[in-house]
Amino acid sequence: MKSKADIKRQLILDTAKQIILDNGLGSLTLDAIAKKASISKGGLLYHFPNKESLIKGLALHIFNDYAFHFYDSAEQDTNETGKWSRALIEATKKDLEQNAELNVGILAASFLEPEINEKISESYIDLLKKLEDDKIDPLTADIIRFALDGIYYSKLFNVASPKQEKIDHVMQQLLEMTRKEG
């Protein structure tokens, strides 16, 4: 069971994330978060003493959530062949359905703290290492990873961002690639 402090911290992070998603990083202020979350600024500062600490916390929270979905999906997959690649696809699909929250966290962190970006990068590399033991052609695993990265970057930079129907079709094709191996 979560403590009151954990619940309040979660509310603050969710509110900050929504402000960024709705209005961009430039609109994120401590006052805006406190107002939207219906908490006092002092209450917010108790959990995050400044905007920088809040953005760091947000980035780590979002990536940790992504990693949780990655490992959870792999754990539920009974087919060992390609399960880590499918877990990456499923975690990515879930994140993209939630407005590409991983991008929000990484982008926010990279503006303020290269150390956080480095930590997220190292964690992502650890996830990707699981694909090396996936019992599928390593090139197939790389193609899956790069396709997912491409979808993220097109959404992040809003450059020729594909329609959801196209993304769904690509995701389905990537899943099929994991089942054709072995």
Rank of each mutant, 00 (worst) to 15 (best):
L60G: 11
L60M: 12
L60E: 09
L60Q: 10
H61Q: 11
H61N: 12
I62H: 09
I62P: 02
I62A: 08
F63E: 10
F63W: 04
F63P: 04
F63A: 06
F63R: 05
F63G: 06
N64E: 01
N64V: 04
N64D: 02
N64F: 02
N64S: 03
N64L: 01
N64A: 02
D65T: 04
D65S: 03
D65K: 03
D65Q: 07
D65W: 04
D65N: 06
Y66E: 11
A67R: 10
A67W: 01
A67C: 07
F68A: 06
F68R: 05
F68Y: 12
F68S: 04
F68E: 08
H69N: 06
H69P: 00
H69T: 00
H69L: 00
H69W: 09
H69F: 05
H69R: 03
F70N: 01
F70Q: 02
F70R: 02
F70S: 00
F70W: 07
Y71T: 01
Y71M: 03
Y71A: 00
Y71C: 01
Y71G: 05
Y71R: 08
D72K: 00
D72V: 00
D72F: 00
D72L: 00
S73Y: 01
S73H: 04
S73N: 08
S73C: 01
A74M: 06
A74G: 05
A74L: 06
A74S: 08
A74E: 05
E75K: 03
E75Q: 05
Q76W: 04
Q76H: 10
Q76C: 10
Q76L: 14
D77W: 08
D77T: 13
D77F: 09
D77R: 08
D77C: 13
D77H: 07
T78D: 15
T78K: 14
T78P: 14
T78Q: 14
N79G: 14
N79E: 15
N79Q: 15
N79A: 15
N79C: 15
N79S: 15
N79P: 11
N79R: 14
N79M: 14
N79Y: 09
N79W: 06
N79F: 08
E80Y: 12
E80K: 09
E80T: 12
E80H: 11
T81C: 15
T81I: 15
G82T: 15
G82P: 15
G82N: 14
G82Q: 13
G82Y: 13
K83Q: 14
K83E: 13
K83R: 15
K83S: 13
K83Y: 13
W84M: 12
W84R: 12
W84Q: 13
W84E: 12
W84L: 08
W84V: 07
W84N: 14
W84A: 11
S85P: 12
R86N: 10
R86L: 11
R86K: 13
R86G: 05
R86T: 07
A87W: 04
A87M: 07
A87C: 10
A87H: 05
A87G: 10
A87K: 07
A87N: 10
L88Q: 03
L88H: 07
L88C: 07
L88P: 03
L88W: 09
I89Q: 00
I89R: 00
I89F: 09
I89A: 00
E90P: 09
E90C: 08
E90G: 06
A91K: 11
A91D: 10
A91Q: 11
A91G: 12
